[in-house]
Design a protein around this nucleic acid. Structure first.
Lengths: 334, 334
DNA sequence: ATATTTAGAGTAAACGTTTACTCAATTAAA
DNA sequence: TTTAATTGAGTAAACGTTTACTCTAAATAT
């Protein structure tokens, strides 16, 4: 590959001059610009970003850490982030941590070694261990779809507890009295705990009787988790008429399972999902769900790190409003 | 951030020695190793990959170019690639070209500037222009889910024409005589042309009457494209009993549209998809489809570039077998 | 005992840029 | 005209590593 030296030689100037025209830095005549540009064209020269990075201390790369999530959700999130990041001439390294601490530490090490300019950490708990590592490296960090109560890290998220509260209340407003929840991993601090909490709060604030067994949880937030949780729920509580699901994937799995069990949605059982992934539009029936503006959130998070990189010290955390997208999976009871 | 100099100072040795223990290169005593390792620990030192890259000419980064595809498909593909790439201590930069020539060139420029060690190009036509740029840079390249007839670039793919042929034949074997196709962009050299060809060949080799209007196409390969194409097809040919779809997304959109139109799947119309994305398991009815082992293919493509990077000059192209995954969207006619 | 090998460690060049500094020549000001 | 400012361009240091080369002292061979 051609280097700046080759260009300099071909254009009969010093490398400093080449560098100047490359960066539009003034200090050269129109003639030399021509000569240099021709040489560049001729040689197909592309400046070496690694060398540039070494001296500028900027790699124009930002790192993204995601745990195992619904692939559609991740896609949307990433595409929002990517759009902004690329707009600014940077690129993105995505690391799937699978919520695994050891793996996360490894990736973190990798990102630091790669000298990324910033890090976005999504949808998981920011352990002290992670934070320290990032903190001491001085790399800007923002949290997406998660937050940290004691650590001073800006975040972009939705109020999960409230969203879940509303989802449940939506069922209540539609006349449902026997409402079950299919939760993912109930210990998940992000998508588990708060959503369960919101569910319980809604029931209790409407004085609806609640039993622990009306929340069925399984390992994760996927189709099968939804399917199995639903089956469990229906054997324990055959009189349930509405389900609040902790993710769209779970809701979809549940709908499929209901179909197999001969249960009609929404005629016999209503369901509301969570995430509003694109496929909700074409499920049968189309899925009523809580929408998190994931793509938008990704964009904002990306802008935040970028701003921090450009020197805007502290960013304000933002919590995005959620929204109930009404489709046809919830029946009005009367 | 601490540099190797800081470590050297703290451990009272030269930077060369630090480098040696870092790389296990011999030429130091057990005592100095201890001292150096302590200093590293103490300072939280992480070797600067940029500096390393400058001298080693390796960035441990590989670039991936993908056009706009079903997000689930991309996710699977990427996850296969990522697994392998990360196993080898490298990382991945994903670039969404949206099948846009200008954007692709920009990304290519970016990847070259970043000095990626290798490039995987997916699911699109490798233009001469792209090839030249990569070729002159000397960066190893492999094609995934696409191929180049005249350019000497190894590829990993499935035989689309044959797969589509089989999908169609599957319908014929199930007794269908009036078979329509919903194709995506018919000019798409990868997922358009060959799949349409396979469809036509299957019909003609079974002496089934064919009209152009039995292939409905729309812009792309998404839900709505499937839905609109299906509606068009059914108004033109209300007697169709089977549909071959060019993607699962299209099939899913079509199923949803059929539901709205009061058409029962598979009782009235059967459908076979293409891709076998995870959601096929939980659609209603579960979708019979052509499976491409995308994750596996991604892995193999990744291994290929990696091997090329490590000096294994030319790799053999591989075409993966497809498979028909029988679920419940095709009815047996008698 | 001397000569030779080896282990441990340091010095400095190189990787491909950017940039502070220098300098000559031209232009503008006095 | 002399002086000062400006323009165009080169030289060399720096960024943080790796590595070829060198050197000393200890260990081994003769």
């Amino acid at each position: 590959m051609a280097t700046i030296k080759d260009v300099a030689r071909a254009a009969n100037v010093s490398i400093a001059t080449v560098s100047r025209v490359l960066n539009n830095k003034s200090g050269f005549s129109e003639d030399t610009r021509k000569a240099v540009e021709e040489a560049i064209e001729e040689l197909g020269y592309v400046p070496n970003g690694v060398a540039r990075g070494l001296i500028s201390k900027r790699t124009n790369t930002i790192g993204l850490l995601v745990p195992a999530l619904s692939s559609m959700l991740v896609s949307e999130m990433v595409s929002g982030i990517e759009r902004i990041v690329h707009e600014q001439g940077s690129s993105l390294i995505v690391c799937h941590t699978e919520s695994n601490g050891k793996k996360t530490m490894q990736y973190l090490q990798l990102l630091l070694a790669k000298q990324v300019d910033g890090i976005i950490f999504t949808s998981g708990v920011l352990l002290q261990e992670y934070y320290q590592m990032i903190e001491r490296s001085g790399i800007p960090l923002v949290l997406l779809s998660t937050e940290s109560l004691h650590l001073p890290v800006p975040s972009v998220k939705v109020n999960d507890r409230l969203a879940s509260f509303h989802a449940t209340e939506y069922m209540i407003q539609h006349g449902h009295k026997k409402i079950g929840m299919i939760s993912g991993n109930r210990n998940d601090m992000i998508a588990g705990v708060p959503r369960v909490e919101g569910f319980r709060m809604a029931l209790s604030s409407h004085q609806i009787h609640f039993e622990e067994s009306m929340i069925a949880s399984h390992r994760g937030f996927s189709y099968i988790d939804g399917a199995t949780a639903f089956r469990k729920l229906m054997t324990d509580h055959p009189d349930i008429t509405a389900i609040v699901a902790a993710s769209d994937d779970m809701a979809l799995g549940m709908i499929s399972e209901a179909f197999k069990m001969g249960i009609k949605i929404p005629e016999q059982v209503s369901v509301i999902g969570y995430d509003n992934i694109p496929i909700c539009n074409v499920s049968i029936p189309p899925l009523t769900t809580i929408s998190q503006p994931v793509a938008k959130m990704g964009e904002v998070a990306a802008k935040m790190v970028l701003d921090m990189i450009h020197g805007d010290e502290k960013q304000e955390s933002v919590v995005f409003p959620h929204e109930i997208i009404e489709r046809q999976s919830v029946k009005k009871m009367n």
